[in-house]
Design a protein around this nucleic acid. Structure first.
Length: 300
RNA sequence: GGGGGGAUAGCGAAGUGGCUAAACGCGGUUGACUGUAAAUCAACUCUCCCUGAGUUCGGCGGUUCGAAUCCGUCUCCCCCCA
């Protein structure tokens, strides 16, 4: 199995710099595992690594599409696997750095996405959550038991899968082994909650100084507010501000709050969805200890 | 000095005799997650020995079988008149 090092975890604790450090030490190249940094136009709000910070290390998966396109897990999985192969062939270590849990998991595990034809879902628009959930019960009972009826998006998704394909989502899942496809060492970066929240709040203020508002303004003009990428934290919150319905300071507070919540969701994800070696980024000792462990893993 | 309004859980705010440990919102915590994932959704949030019990609605006292809700009084806050 190919070796893949993963630097996952919470936003804003220094994953990018840590990734570069590891790449230098272990002769690696970095594949970004971030659903927003793929967009060329979204840099400040996505806390995208700057060229000078890359320090000569090759980075993939950044600025690979524009807002004219849409990008999904499946695209990421395809892209990432190709990159892993290429980097490995060059005799270097692929290092995934990012915080988009689903993307990373889909890349590392035997997730299988299939070609789907476009389905007309407009008939669902007029249905209540409960009715849709009932429909799902009919075609995929197991999924209907797992997805809460209020989770309309996921109910619709499961329904669409069952309708568009011969197989239901449950059947699809049953065909997979749910195993890692690589010899992966997964580092998950975090830090104590209080320190983390302070850091995140400050980071948002820094983004504002760096010109986030202008970036959001431009992006919203080229992509429109309905573009999926514009639902990202640090972007969507300014919609009402630009429409004159929200003060700037309120919008900023919302970005901060949403960032905090997001960080918590990331912790939950990595805690339960993947086997991780947690790294407390606020502890130099823990960080260097982790690097030692990477070193050991490299040699066996 | 006179008149009026108000004090409810971390915050904001409903509730004006029993169905109220107290709606709702915010904030917070926990969790779910296979094509929008920085998305979407759920649970919990007075205390405890927590499928039950105990203390709450500015303080004290009273009315009542029963009070956050009624009466008295005290404290503090806001507005208007002087």
């Amino acid at each position: 199995m190919k070796k893949v090092l993963v630097v996952a975890g919470v936003t804003g604790v220094g994953k990018s710099a840590f990734g570069v450090k590891l790449a230098q030490r272990f002769n690696g190249e970095i594949i970004s595992g971030d659903s927003v940094a793929v967009y060329k136009e979204l840099s400040i709000g996505s806390a995208k690594i700057k060229t000078e910070e890359m320090d000569g290390i090759n980075h993939h998966g950044i600025d690979i599409v524009t807002l004219d396109d849409k990008f999904s897990v499946r695209d990421f999985q395809k892209y990432g696997r190709i990159k892993i192969d290429e980097i490995t062939e060059r005799g270097k270590l692929p290092i995934i750095v990012g915080g988009t849990g689903l993307y990373i998991r889909a890349l590392l595990y035997d997730y299988e996405f299939q070609d789907e034809q476009e389905v007309d879902n407009t008939w669902m628009d007029t249905m209540s959550n409960e009715e849709l959930h009932l429909e799902l019960c009919k075609v995929d009972l197991e999924q209907s038991e797992m997805i809460h009826q209020n989770n309309r998006k996921r109910v619709i998704r499961a329904l669409s899968i069952a309708i568009a394909n011969q197989k239901s989502k449950t059947e699809l899942l049953n065909e997979q082994k749910h195993e890692l496809m690589y010899d992966a060492l997964i580092l998950s970066c975090t830090m104590p909650r209080d320190a983390l929240y302070d850091r995140l709040n400050l980071r948002v203020e820094k983004m504002m100084k760096d010109g986030l508002l202008e970036e959001v303004n431009q992006a919203s003009q080229v992509a429109g507010w309905d573009h999926p990428a514009m639902a990202a934290i640090g972007y969507k919150e300014f919609r009402e501000y630009f429409e004159g319905k929200l003060s700037l300071s309120d919008a900023i507070s919302l970005v901060q709050r949403n960032t905090r919540r997001f960080a918590k969701r990331q912790i939950t994800w990595f805690k339960h969805q993947m086997p991780c070696r947690w790294v407390d980024m606020s502890s130099e000792e823990d960080v260097s200890q982790a690097i030692e462990e990477v070193s050991l893993w490299m040699n066996h």
